[in-house]
């Protein structure tokens, strides 16, 4: 049964990014994570985002990528709203404008914008890595870099169970509809929970017996069917990534002029516009989400 698709899963393709072994991709995603948390410079974070978008373009995964971002970005926008009025920044704060009980601070806008950039850059690289890698290869790679077998297995199982539970949910909903119960809206979802979860528990029990019957958990050495091939190109890429990251980190740490929090001044109109747009964007998202849930 197709039809139910996990939003974050592999998008088949044959781009350069698809063909690179998962290890350099995972490393790059990790490096970007480190980098984006070590700087608040909007230009560097912006550059990372652009680089990430180049990767998305090369891999040709814009559509699924934007689908995930459409959910994520409005949530991220709350950062701007909240940060502007309560910055996570050492005082003193410089007020830009006051609107009733709220004051928008310069540091707040700066902090909000950089946080959104930070989260976006991390997400882009992580998504690009996940969307261009077959899940099995991804797990094989994780295992290769030392993730415990059982933990890896739990992750694989979880990914498998999501579509199965969705399918079971649909079945239960249709069954209830056919007995004249309400088939849509939140009122229909609640009574379906019990049968779906009881079914899930039964499934897990049966599965554990099944797995045990196939020697799962037996003592002795295990082997792994899926293996990731790492070529010299991959090693080169990993080397480049590591060096690039180290270089950037060195620059970030040693160059104090990269802190633009006091120099990048937001004009009052820009601050208000950003604040309003972020708030409206988030509210629209919330309204759409509620409507979708109620109609489901």
């Amino acid at each position: 049964m197709r039809g139910v698709v996990i939003p974050i899963s592999m998008v088949p393709g044959n781009s350069v990014i698809h063909r690179i072994s998962p290890l350099p991709k995972l490393l790059l995603a990790g490096c970007v994570l480190v980098l984006s948390f070590s700087t608040r410079n909007p230009a560097i974070l912006g550059a990372l985002i652009v680089l990430g978008m180049v990767m998305v373009s090369v891999a040709n995964i814009w559509k699924p990528f934007l689908r995930v971002m459409a959910i994520l970005f409005p949530i991220l926008l709350t950062l701007i709203t909240l940060q502007s009025i309560a910055p996570a920044f050492p005082r003193p704060w410089t007020p830009i404008v006051s609107m009733g009980p709220f004051t928008i601070y310069q540091e707040g806008i700066y902090s909000g914008v950089t946080m959104v950039e930070r989260a976006t850059s991390m997400t882009i690289f992580a998504l690009a890595a996940i969307m261009t890698t077959h899940p099995s290869d991804l797990f094989a790679s994780l295992q290769k870099i030392g993730m415990p077998y059982v933990l890896n297995f739990i992750l694989t199982m979880t990914l498998q169970l999501i579509p199965i539970l969705q399918k079971e949910f649909t079945t239960v909903l249709s069954a209830q509809k056919s007995r004249g119960l309400k088939g849509t809206g939140f009122a229909a979802v609640l009574p379906s929970m019990v049968p779906v979860f009881v079914g899930a528990i039964e499934r897990v029990q049966q599965l554990s017996i099944s797995l045990e019957s196939r020697a799962f958990g037996s003592s002795g050495a295990k082997t792994s069917y899926r293996s990731v091939k790492v070529s010299w190109v991959d090693y080169l890429l990993m080397l480049l990534t590591t060096f690039g990251t180290c270089g950037l980190l060195y620059w970030i740490i040693t160059d104090p002029s990269l802190d633009w929090s006091r120099t990048l001044i937001f004009a009052p109109w820009l601050a208000i516009t950003l604040f309003t747009l972020a708030t409206i964007g988030f509210l629209i998202f919330v309204i759409i989400a509620i409507r979708v849930v109620l109609r489901a």
Partner: peptide, 28 residues
């Protein structure tokens, strides 16, 4: 067992069969 879906857990048919072999430590 009676319910086929409750016995399967892997991403592909080949991996499903390989699971038991992996657990026994059969060479790849």
């Amino acid at each position: 067992f009676d319910n086929p879906e409750f016995q399967l857990s892997q991403m592909s048919v080949a991996e499903e069969i390989a699971l038991g072999l992996e657990n026994l430590g059969v060479a790849v």
